[in-house]
Design a protein around this nucleic acid. Structure first.
Lengths: 210, 210, 210, 210
DNA sequence: GATGAATGAGCATTCATTCAT
DNA sequence: AATGAATGAATGCTCATTCAT
């Protein structure tokens, strides 16, 4: 009887399956990951996987929902409650995002969404709305706060938000694309992003009013 | 009368086939594009396609080689012959790259390479060496020129080169991923990149020496 | 009502599939037999065939293993337990092998192995070791027994074993190659082999010791 | 002008093409040999090959005709003119055939005919008539001569002819199937056949009439 | 709830053969 | 006579999905 604890797992099963799926998607990409492999890694059978998710695409979508949205909300909460200077808020935001980039499994999700967008336009649309637009909106609101407080010079906040985010995208693509090829391709994320912020803050600084 | 000159097209056929492949890869991605479709769009048969390219992967590779390398070389030539101020050189570089971004078909190639890197690591390695590293090296050399001439403050040039490039990557991903979903998602590339350069140049400007 | 009991046939399926494969290989040869045909003849789908055998070659190999080895063992057991005179043992051996030749489906396997040896060298190697060498060794041991007991004159037993076997090979090739072309090409196997044994035994007989 | 002697080869071209085909069939078997390869090895183009042979099967047939029949005729001539004892004639016949077996390229033809018989029944039929039946007939006539002259005891000559030939078939299959796998699998053809003849002649010897 | 045997649509690739030049 | 570009039928294999147990 090596097979104890069979029931009662109903609650945890979906999470276990998603975790297995995330691992495999990270390792081999979406197309190369077989439903059977996902089930096997989660210690379940193919049938069970289909019990919780009606299709491979559904697994992918659930993964995106479950992994990205909580982080989104956490970040929004931090920003909402912030009291200090806007440059400091921007630095805090950058560091929170940088910490997310450290999570080797999490980081593959945006890459996957981008890579598979042509195959799953609905998912891409959802991701744009729920992650991209919402994230850019959050950054833009920070920038507006800075402009309103005279800390930044006037600029289109949405536009700058995209520029603020671009180096994160670069890191996502680099780490998911090139780093797996060879360890020596690794980049120092922190330095990359701190330099980014440094240049950005100087570039955004309000004109000296002599 | 599209059906004249059937034989002796050995010279033009590969280019026609690559063009068709690029169109389809752009539309549907690599995996979803069938060899038969490529051939058909080029007005040829499957067998003819295999006459010129031994595999689907080979088509992809030939596409990357033929489309990216010439532009790389053109850019290097411009930079090598430049005489004016470094900020102007950076602006010229940005505009050349921006114009490449306008090419709706060309732009899908980097996206594809990134998306398929896991499936074609050799191609990814080649692309990193021949496009990414080479391109970043070129930008870094421009930045070094500016620092040497006292136009920019001292910074790690490779690091800054990556920051210079990040918004281009963002545009590539945006235009290939989100714009096809809905026309209204389009971004004004020029404004995006000009703002980027504006902030970057300010952020990099040499300290006032009073 | 051939369509009952669709599931839970895991135990019997491989044998059914191999039987179908043997039929088709016998009829059309290895190359000309399609996996789909094998599956269809076994009342299964292509996918099911691949569920049990990872490739066409694997089907072939399983067939060779499953059909030849048991007979090999049976024959060895008979020889090992034999008590009578060696000429009688040789005659018994010949009759057992002759009976195997009667099996119209079994007989195609050696023919196939020979015909496909260039395409499947590993299989050929295995077959040489597991069937040819082992069989020749068995015959050689019988011949040695006869020589040791003074029933046969001294001769290289391995060499003679090959001569003992040659007419069986001839029957295999004849029946698989020429008989299918025309019924009238049939040969009386029994007479062929009994004559063979008759001549061989006389040719091997110990010199009269006057 | 590296391309001299273009014309005038009309006579030799077919022979060159057949030689190339024989080489390749010997190396890789019939199915695995591509028409393009045959043409290339003969220094010609695919089109030229089709100029002389209407199909791959036709190449095969021409090969069988051109390579086997002359040897057949040569052997018949030797037998027809023979004057000595029948055992000696049998030994001479055996040696002529043994020498043919030494020809590594020639030897693959019977193997190919057997292997491909299912795919080319017409060729198999032709081969049976023109080579097998004719050859067995020749041997049978020698055996009849020996029985008529009281050198051999009475036996069905056709039946014994097949037994005489069986070890040659074994050598053909062995050398074409197992020897290419590993040099160490080589057999001493001469000893094999001489032992065969020795046993056969004893086995056939007329009864001592005391 | 859970299983895993069964399905079959889908696609890359090969190569004998044709025929305009 | 000779070429070689073009064709397209044919087939092994994969894997998401279904469903009887």
């Amino acid at each position: 009887m090596p097979d104890r604890l069979p029931r009662r797992r109903k609650e945890t099963r979906p999470a276990e399956l998603l975790e297995a799926a995330l691992d495999l998607f990270a390792e081999k990409g979406f197309a190369a990951t077989r439903m059977e492999d996902i089930a096997a890694r989660a210690g379940a059978s193919k049938g069970t996987l289909y019990l919780y998710f009606p299709s491979k695409q559904a697994v992918f979508e659930a993964l995106v929902h479950s992994a990205l949205l909580p982080n989104m909300e956490r970040l929004e909460a931090v920003v909402a409650g912030y009291e200090g200077s806007t440059p400091e808020l921007l630095r805090t935001t950058l560091r929170i995002l940088a910490r997310l980039l450290e999570n080797r499994r999490l980081i593959v999700l945006p890459k996957l969404v981008l890579a598979e967008a042509a195959n799953f336009p609905d998912l891409a649309r959802f991701h744009k709305r729920a992650v991209v637009d919402r994230g850019l909106g959050l950054i833009a609101s920070i920038l507006e706060r800075g402009m309103a407080r005279g800390e930044f010079r006037r600029q289109n906040p949405v536009l700058v938000a995209r520029l603020f985010v671009a180096p994160f995208l670069m890191m996502v693509m680099w780490r998911t694309t090139f780093e797996p090829l060879d360890e020596s391709f690794a980049i120092d994320t922190t330095r990359h992003l701190e330099t980014h912020l440094d240049i950005l803050l100087r570039g955004l600084a309000a004109e000296e009013t002599p």
